[in-house]
């Protein structure tokens, strides 16, 4: 069964590249350009996993996580962080506390690393 991946990144080149690569690797994709857009898209469709950039303008990552926690339909949705910040910093900010956060990919990363993370968690 085709798995659905939502990609949330405010940098258009990153967003487009990842979506294009996932499409080519037989994943169904949903694009979102920021946290607000992500929450809007989640009202329409529920992905298996979300690739979420944690340094975006607008809603904070914590706000996105909190909003998702309030929606029981999204209980099974997993999140993989993609970010330029250090793992320890994310840990200190408490971003890794959520059970739905299953992996943390530091930019720059190889596509193989990203595909392996998605494969493992869908």
């Amino acid at each position: 069964m085709t798995k659905t991946v939502m990609v949330v990144d405010d940098v258009p080149d990153v967003l487009t590249s990842i979506v294009q690569i996932l499409d080519a690797n037989q994943y169904k994709t949903i694009k979102a350009k920021d946290g607000q857009d992500c929450l809007e898209e989640l009202k329409e469709e529920i992905p298996d996993v979300i690739l979420l950039d944690i340094m975006m303008p607008g809603l904070t990552t914590q706000e996105i996580l909190d909003d998702m926690d309030r929606d029981s339909r999204l209980a099974e949705v997993k999140i993989i962080f993609m970010t330029a910040i250090h793992l320890l910093e994310a840990e200190e900010r408490g971003l890794l506390a959520s059970q739905r956060v299953v992996d943390f990919i530091e930019k720059p990363f190889t596509i193989k690393r990203m595909l392996d993370a998605i494969e493992k968690n869908t």
């Binding site: 940098v11 990153v14 330029a84 930019k107 720059p108 990363f109 190889t110 596509i111 193989k112 690393r113």
Partner: peptide, 14 residues
């Protein structure tokens, strides 16, 4: 080979 993605988009491949 694998593409490397940076903060601003594809960087290069290894």
């Amino acid at each position: 080979t694998s593409l490397i993605l940076g903060t601003k988009g594809p960087l290069q491949f290894v």
